[in-house]
Design a protein around this nucleic acid. Structure first.
Lengths: 254, 254
DNA sequence: CGTGACGTCCGGCGTGGCCGGACAACTATT
DNA sequence: AATAGTTGTCCGGCCACGCCGGACGTCACG
């Protein structure tokens, strides 16, 4: 069992629930929100008014919308901003060279978050928008990050989020995951063979700081038919690894 | 006098104060925050714990940091996202053509917010990061937006935020501002002659929807010595206006 | 081993978060 | 027009909970 969820300031939690659903609904009125959240109109209204006063929301022709204030907060911790800035141009190059999607992911609270992505000329459309949160075990990126963390941390993640199946090929066994992580540690890169999205393969490599702790991971992903065994097992990994290396060097010396 | 600030949910306001200072300090511990905010440690801790539990914050080696969750919320209302997506490539082109800075701004709560910027090869470094909030009357971008709003809206903005001086040349008189806005309406573009940053000039044009209401504005800005009268008064305006026109067309027909 | 700073957590006081309900403004339908 | 059903807003009051002082454990110093 997970430890009891200590939330001493429930009002804050409520506020964020409202903001989240407001974001999901892409703007809404008081009643619509109250209905969706199963809360009294007046309570929702109280929160909305406070947020509007604080300029975190915008009221436009009757509906409330999430404001641009969050953009500013989105430019979050500069340490991660640094990874973002250094990695982004490299991701672009990677996408250009391979013609496929290239991604940058970090870990937070045991989940993977897409920090950036670049589309190559042949890239298919995917559901990976910036900020998207996924389970670590379902992606090569996540496995690359996990491979650089101690076993205790891996156990923690499993206990907290489980290993839910999202496609037929998703890893759902803890031991199987751990043995894959050992492999990844050995060869330096991780792969994902239709484990999060059917028909998509992915190759990822971790980015570490000087202590060997993972800062994030980068990847290239594409449709199975273009990622045949040859490119999938040798060519792409080589490119990804070399790019990861460039980023690591730039991170430590600047 | 501005109307009384109705904030029915003070706890939410407190939470956001904490997040903001956390962001400014680029991560901090409980004591440091409590000191900065002049609040009891325990109160700050309560909020931090709640936010951490909700995964809006990250605790990394002792310090709390603003989490990437805000990135997701930063991809806010799709209508503005649309402007962002359509305008961004045009901004890039603008920066490339002119070699200077090109910017995209929207208005919220009577203030201007930089949605995006592009740096040309000769661009000097500026303080305009994405999400940055400025007074509308201090920038060509802001004046371009104001020029498309009714006088009552302009009065509201003035009443709410005043016309504070930020450089020697800042506009601080309401009538002067309004006569400039009339000029802008006539010729279609706005200028800023060291009114926000000494040594910097700027040319901006509004982006409007089908009803003529302003969605935002774009601009090109550069150092005074490169923006001499010739380029400043004719060349740059022409380029900016034509780009603004392209964006407007793409916004209405897609 | 002491000293100070840290993060965490408990317990209680009293304020304010929360909610039911009233009300005005607006639209649509008859 | 008048009515009926929306909507957003705003009171008033009760009792939960936000807030705070203080205690406690931990860690890094010298």
């Amino acid at each position: 069992m997970s430890s009891k969820p200590r939330q001493p300031v429930q009002a804050a939690a409520t506020t964020f629930r409202i903001i989240e659903t407001l974001h999901e609904l892409n703007g809404a009125g008081v009643s619509e929100l109250a209905d969706e959240l199963e809360m009294p109109k007046s309570t929702v209204h109280d929160h909305l008014q406070t947020l509007n006063e604080a300029e975190y929301l915008v009221k436009r022709n009757g509906d409330y919308h999430v404001g641009a204030r969050f953009l500013e907060l989105g430019g979050f911790a500069r340490s991660q901003m640094k990874l973002y800035q250094i990695a982004s141009p490299e991701i672009e190059k990677l996408a250009e060279e391979t013609g496929e999607h290239a991604n940058l992911m970090i870990e937070e609270h045991g989940k993977g978050i897409f920090l950036n992505k670049a589309k190559g000329r042949d890239a298919v459309n995917l559901d990976t928008h910036i900020g998207k949160r996924v389970h670590l075990h379902t992606t090569a990126l996540g496995k690359a990050i996990l491979s650089k963390r101690p076993e205790s941390a891996v156990d923690e993640v499993i206990e907290r989020h489980g290993l839910p199946r999202v496609t037929e090929k998703t890893l759902t066994d803890a031991d199987e995951l751990k043995s894959q992580l050992a492999e990844i540690r050995e060869r330096g890169y991780a792969i994902d063979d239709e484990e999060r999205v059917a028909g998509m393969r992915c190759v990822a490599a971790p980015i570490c700081d000087g202590d060997g702790d993972p800062l994030g991971a980068i990847s290239v992903s594409g449709p199975t038919n273009r990622f045949n065994d040859e490119t999938f097992r040798t060519e792409i990994p080589k490119t990804v690894l070399s790019t990861a290396n460039v980023i690591e060097v730039n991170m430590t010396y600047s």
